[in-house]
């Protein structure tokens, strides 16, 4: 009998502890319909909601804090955005940091942000526009509208993604290996001028298609590298023939030395 009381008591105690902490229910995110005619001010409000909720931006990023932060503070991003990468407008910079977060990592921070239009966060292009409007409003004046075309996701905004992607594929089909190497952003991390005599053609192909197969790194380091490869978008955009052409180009470089 004492045992029964003890078991019930201990369980009840832990249940009560569970009731004392803040109770928050997280709803499953829904696709937020944004009609084409909302004003920029309304986009800021919508974007703020997305940043706090579905986009989970504010789980990592702070607004208006300093000290030893793990992720860049967003305060004043509206003005800073235009100055980060020379020649890149604020909107394009913000779009890049959402669609290709590891393309430019703020100095002093580690890469680690997920691609926002892919699972698990998976915002739609319209939602991302609203988030950009919100980010611009932090210390700046928002300039995007729902009609803004972003150059980063293939010059596509809103509904025209599919056609734009098709155009991109068309364009890429006619490029040579060197152009493709730059087109898919390989040059962002890889150099072609260094002596690279270790791998033969099959190995180079394998290390592109399956980055884990040939590597000198291990564990989390390798994971970081692979994530960077995956997020470069090369797997989604490039066809096999194109990758073939890139490898051809790389082998040419090797032959030159």
């Amino acid at each position: 009998m004492n045992i029964v009381v003890l078991v019930l008591g201990a369980t009840a105690f832990y249940t009560i502890v569970g009731q004392l902490v803040p109770q928050k229910e997280v709803p499953a995110p829904e696709v937020i319909e944004i009609s084409k005619d909302v004003t920029t001010e309304e986009m800021v409000e919508i974007g703020k909601g997305i940043a706090q909720g579905k986009g989970t931006c504010l789980t990592c990023h702070t607004i208006g804090q300093s000290g030893s932060l793990r992720f860049p503070d967003l305060d004043g991003i509206g003005t800073r955005a235009a100055t980060r990468i020379p020649g890149m407008s604020a909107v394009d910079y913000l779009a890049q940091s959402l669609y290709e977060p590891n393309a430019y990592v703020v100095e002093g921070f580690n890469p680690g942000m997920p691609v926002i239009n892919k699972p698990p966060i998976q915002l739609t292009d319209d939602e991302i526009l609203a988030v950009i409007a919100f980010l611009q409003s932090l210390g700046g004046t928002p300039s995007v509208t729902m009609e803004t075309k972003l150059s980063i996701n293939g010059g596509a905004g809103g509904d025209s993604t599919a056609t734009a992607t098709a155009a991109l594929v068309q364009e890429a089909a006619s490029l040579d290996g060197k152009a493709l190497f730059e087109r898919y952003g390989c040059a962002r991390c890889h150099a072609t001028t260094l002596p690279g005599k270790r791998l033969d053609r099959a190995e180079v192909l394998a290390s592109i298609l399956s980055p884990d197969s040939i590597t000198t790194l291990a564990g989390a380091e390798q994971a970081k590298k692979r994530q960077a490869m995956e997020q470069s978008g090369v797997y989604d955009k490039a066809t096999l023939q194109e990758i073939d052409r890139i490898v051809d180009y790389l082998m040419e470089q090797k032959a030159k030395e």
Binding site: D75, G78, T79, G140
Partner: peptide, 22 residues
């Protein structure tokens, strides 16, 4: 509440002078 909201990006005018806060 944002204790330290971001300052305006446009220059502000104080007593006839303009200051770019950045």
């Amino acid at each position: 509440r944002t204790v330290h909201p971001a300052p305006p990006s446009e220059p502000i005018t104080v007593r006839g002078q303009t200051f770019d806060l950045n």
